[in-house]
Nucleic acid binder design. Sequence first.
DNA 1: TATGGTGCTTGACACCATGTCAAGGTCAAT
DNA 2: ATTGACCTTGACATGGTGTCAAGCACCATA
Lengths: 130, 130
Amino acid sequence: MKIGEAAAASGVSERMIRHYEKIGLIAAAARRSSGYRDYDARDVETLRFIRRSRDLGFPIEEIGQLLSLWHDRGRASADVKALALSRAAELQRKAAELEQMRRALLDLAERCHGDDRPDCPILCGLEGLA
Amino acid sequence: MKIGEAAAASGVSERMIRHYEKIGLIAAAARRSSGYRDYDARDVETLRFIRRSRDLGFPIEEIGQLLSLWHDRGRASADVKALALSRAAELQRKAAELEQMRRALLDLAERCHGDDRPDCPILCGLEGLA
DNA sequence: TATGGTGCTTGACACCATGTCAAGGTCAAT
DNA sequence: ATTGACCTTGACATGGTGTCAAGCACCATA
């Protein structure tokens, strides 16, 4: 299977497949005599695993750890759970941060009459004179 | 005022001050005969404005628009409010996305016993066999 | 078989915001 | 005058992805 087909089958772009190979997240693909990369079903499975992990917000480094655990038949599920819970906590932290920014913005916007007049509490707030 | 003092006074790092100058977000600073950049209170105010905008999640491009509006004494507050509300909506969208990822992760983690045994619903979920 | 179109290769540049490091010049205080 | 802190520019890195370019491989059809 050539890289284009592997990309279509896994949902990971050709660009990112080459990238993951370069940074060592996945092993270098087999090559045909022409130099084309050659993929099999197992490779596609791995790529799909990576894509799902990314979709769940795991950074590359942690995806590497997940892949190790995945390939390790004797791993303890506790190790995986710990990674997942720590990721979930991080996501919550980030979401809370965004929410806090949003609330601050809405507070400013609420005090802004939002018409043709030039005075604007939002800009004053950004100046630091809120 | 030299760049280090301006950085300390505004909360924007020296690195980013130079960066903002290079990308044209702020005007090129005055220079002493030595070549050192020279800042006054007004410059620091601008930097602080930028920092607060960044803290509220505005991307650089929108900060440029905010700066224009800020400097424009005749601006309509409605224009500022529109920017702020659109930013708030974007923040909410992003937060919701993170929250959705988190929930998916927690769903998987909940089904994982998290002990020494190797079978793990989280990894199965990442494989796509959830 | 020749040709064309599509797919593959590598490499480079871009984004956005920020950090760090290096080599060299300047300032201020001792 | 020396020293140590500060400034200058430039380059490289991060993370995840896009795009573009030049050149080669593959396949089907004329």
